[in-house]
Design a protein around this nucleic acid. Structure first.
Lengths: 328, 328
DNA sequence: TCCTTGCGTTGGAGCGCTCTAATCCGCCTA
DNA sequence: TAGGCGGATTAGAGCGCTCCAACGCAAGGA
């Protein structure tokens, strides 16, 4: 038994195909009697419209393509939640795809997304080259956690410089002076966080110390092990990285926060686990998703043509991994 | 500038639309000269085939719909990885959707998936009613981490009874006798894990003690706090739940594993974090994804009609949260 | 009475592609 | 030289839907 089509519904309701189409799209210019007849017929047949045929015929799409760079990072799951909720409310469906942190796989994912001819595409933390992005950009595009100067794309970012400054200020207020930053290497948004840290340290008359890292647990642990001279606080690249820092500190017999304070970045649920209780910088993840959806949809509707540069403000969340330094 | 169509490519290459179609599908019955001409024209125009028009015309689909019950649980991210890799290799695209743990949202997600007329649908840890599943089932369906007696659906599960038994055996071998199980309530696969625990305890001549829980950190912590009589080991509902157990034990001033041993379930990366170092039961997550993809694809190709009941074997991963009980 | 108006409804074209059957053409065989 | 063959190519219909122009019809105005 093949799926019923609009034709079948029309036949059963004793009307034309075009009328069924109008009912399905909730058009006001259909008499109440016909409307209920059509809806009944549709219900009896278990009819549901064929999204692809619809978008093919209407030359419009109700699909938003989303490429998630890394499905394993809980950060993105929460951004997707925000996107999903808002898009759904506006009548859009999400097609999610994953890029696995590799430029080539991202490019393939991008191609696969465009084959659906979505109304717009959101790239969450992409690492793919700018040129590949422009190539795909005959639809509205929004980048989350990656800045870009391309005028055809919108961006949603947190103010990484401000975030790092919040962390430094917090640590300095507690009395710390030897504050190390483990950075995110070439990861998305690593540069502004690093810059924010350096500026804030200078503002307090302190010497910045940056250890090379990336957005993984292992990198956080390795960076701590490589540090020779003493320090009393660490600003990690992100929460995952911070957990690696915690492990390495424990290995070295250092207590947190008595001997060393640690601050993460993102405030994913990982940081909130009581067993970890990480002081961290909160990025409003759901809001970022919502903003991305809004930006995309407004472009799709042609309400805006100028590039949007949306910046959200990070906040400090104090938990158990920061405290005053040891008074020596 | 609208996207180029097959017509445009055909015109540029000086051939018919049908020939372009053949080239795009890699048909062998095209002369080398025409093939390169078409490919060149396509490259020059930046043509990429329109997936929806294609599936509409061919009445077949290269899309697999995937509904993830909970994007926040790292377990599913890893299953999706397995699915993705295998599906992609077989020439299928994934459309991922999220159900947010709620039956009504899952049902909506399911409707949205079917509107894409996918070749098959994978439901990862669905909580939606069986009846809603059958309603959608005019395409092959596979359930992961949820058993079902419906003959039209395939299932992929780990052997939860065996997994629990592994945990109990491990703890008993270490010398434990007071082993508590915090269960997953009505969550998917909670029942077999509970049963496996009870049977294994009985086999060792021990009295089972089950505390009601669910698959969250908070539930793990709450369950431990509610326990009155002494115990030396806990088998948690899953890893997330186990982390809650660790927190509650720390609060109560109990050390792990010196005072209490803790075993999780799933072996997500969370368990592997060195700061947590959770002994746990490994479910082969990627393999489960791969099996789901294989099952779906073989049904899609009509190679099989009988329902597949795929069961994978869990294994024990010993880390830092289990050890011999205190000798009193 | 006829003509207009406007709402409700419909036929038909066409979205970008696939698929079947038909056509073309060079070459081998009788 | 005619006939047959088979591989390469193409025309045309059609997938399920939307959209436009056109149509029928009852009510109102001249």
């Amino acid at each position: 038994m093949a799926r019923p089509t609009m034709e079948d519904v029309a036949a059963r309701a004793g009307v034309s195909r075009a009328l069924v189409s109008l009912v399905m799209r909730g058009s006001p210019k259909v008499s109440a009697a016909r409307r209920t007849a059509v809806l009944e017929a549709a219900a009896e047949l278990g009819y549901s419209p064929h999204a692809m045929a619809r978008s093919l015929a209407s030359r419009t799409s109700h699909v938003l393509g989303v490429m998630v760079s890394d499905l394993h990072n809980p950060f993105w799951a929460e951004v997707v939640d925000g996107l999903d909720g808002h898009a759904r409310a506006a009548g859009f469906e999400l097609v999610i795809n994953t890029g696995g942190r590799s430029p080539s796989r991202e490019q393939q994912a991008l191609r696969s997304l465009t084959s659906f001819r979505p109304a717009g595409i959101a790239l969450l933390g992409p690492v793919v080259a700018s040129s590949a992005i422009t190539a795909a950009a005959d639809v509205p595009l929004v980048l989350v956690s990656r800045s870009s100067r391309l005028s055809i794309v919108d961006t949603v970012n947190d103010d990484g410089r401000a975030g790092s400054a919040l962390a430094v200020d917090h640590l300095v207020a507690l009395g710390h002076r030897e504050i190390v930053h483990i950075d995110g290497g070439s990861g998305s948004q690593a540069a502004p966080r690093r810059a924010g840290y350096q500026v804030a340290m200078a503002r307090h008359g302190l010497t910045p110390r940056v250890a090379r890292g990336e957005y993984t647990e292992a990198a956080g642990a390795a960076a701590v092990r490589s540090l020779r001279s003493p320090f009393t606080a660490v600003l990690a690249a992100n929460d995952l990285n911070a957990v690696g820092v915690l492990s390495a500190l424990a290995e070295a017999g250092l207590r947190v926060p008595e001997d060393v304070s640690v601050v993460g970045y993102d405030n994913t649920w990982l940081a909130g686990l009581r067993h970890i209780g990480l002081t961290t910088i909160d990025q409003p993840r759901e809001e970022m998703g919502r903003l991305a959806a809004t930006a995309l949809i407004s472009r799709v509707r042609g309400e805006r043509t100028a590039a949007a540069r949306l910046v959200v403000q990070p906040t400090l969340v104090v938990r158990a991994t920061t405290g005053p330094p040891r008074t020596q």
